[in-house]
Design a binder for these strands. Sequence first.
DNA 1: ACACTTATTTAGAATGGTTATAAACTAGAT
DNA 2: ATCTAGTTTATAACCATTCTAAATAAGTGT
Lengths: 132, 132
Amino acid sequence: MKYIEKLRNSGLRPTKQRLQICEVLFDTEKTFHFTINNLANKIKKQLNNKISLATIYNTVHAFEKKGYLKQIPINSNQTYFDTNVSDHHHFYDLKEEKLIDLDNSDVGPINILKKVNGKKIKSIEVLVKLED
Amino acid sequence: MKYIEKLRNSGLRPTKQRLQICEVLFDTEKTFHFTINNLANKIKKQLNNKISLATIYNTVHAFEKKGYLKQIPINSNQTYFDTNVSDHHHFYDLKEEKLIDLDNSDVGPINILKKVNGKKIKSIEVLVKLED
DNA sequence: ACACTTATTTAGAATGGTTATAAACTAGAT
DNA sequence: ATCTAGTTTATAACCATTCTAAATAAGTGT
């Protein structure tokens, strides 16, 4: 199993639930955006056994902390995650309430001219809201 | 009263509560960021009378819809608002959990090269996360 | 000033995403 | 096989936000 080592190397035990969630998240051709609710439904459809909601929350947070998932900063009642952890940005279609990836090359280089004492930049995230 | 006309022109009745919230929000030298909880506390301190939490929610949302306030896209359990509605961006200090304004001139021009069929760009928001 | 209509305020209940709890279970080590 | 620490689980708790429906206030016409 290709995810066993990945998990072990991160200090996460490769449990059955984590491996199955890995399959749902990472065994896809394309990366995708999801909420916990989305993911829970996907798991229910794709898998025969049940995974507790608490475990899904735990696992998603564990994966995020390890850098296998990214949270997308957006105002919504639900938290959005992205399986694409490469440096990139998002369109947000306000009408459809849908996120669309923006490659880094789709957004010109961003120069932050202001400095904050003793702090360094961890990430730069651009959200482009779309309307009709 | 300077806010009476402003509210009437927006189709909002200038009630005592709305005028008082206007004072707390806009009678300041500098613009600021806040959550509903922040604002409720500020109102409690600054005003002698009580304004219901439901009214604070209603008013903030009404003001946002009219363009007097902006929501800041950020992942948090609470929604952040900004009294600075001009086009600008934010630093987010992860350790202090604090927002810092970034003037548009502090961020180079941003060119979105990708287009989405039939949609136009409503806003471009940049969030720069800071760590130690 | 008065009556009338509609918007607004309000306390409290309801909602719903997320987190906490604590007991049962499992992976990995000895 | 046994032990220990990490995981999973159902369920309760939490808490920001929204809903509800009754009371109040603003605007309008008379």
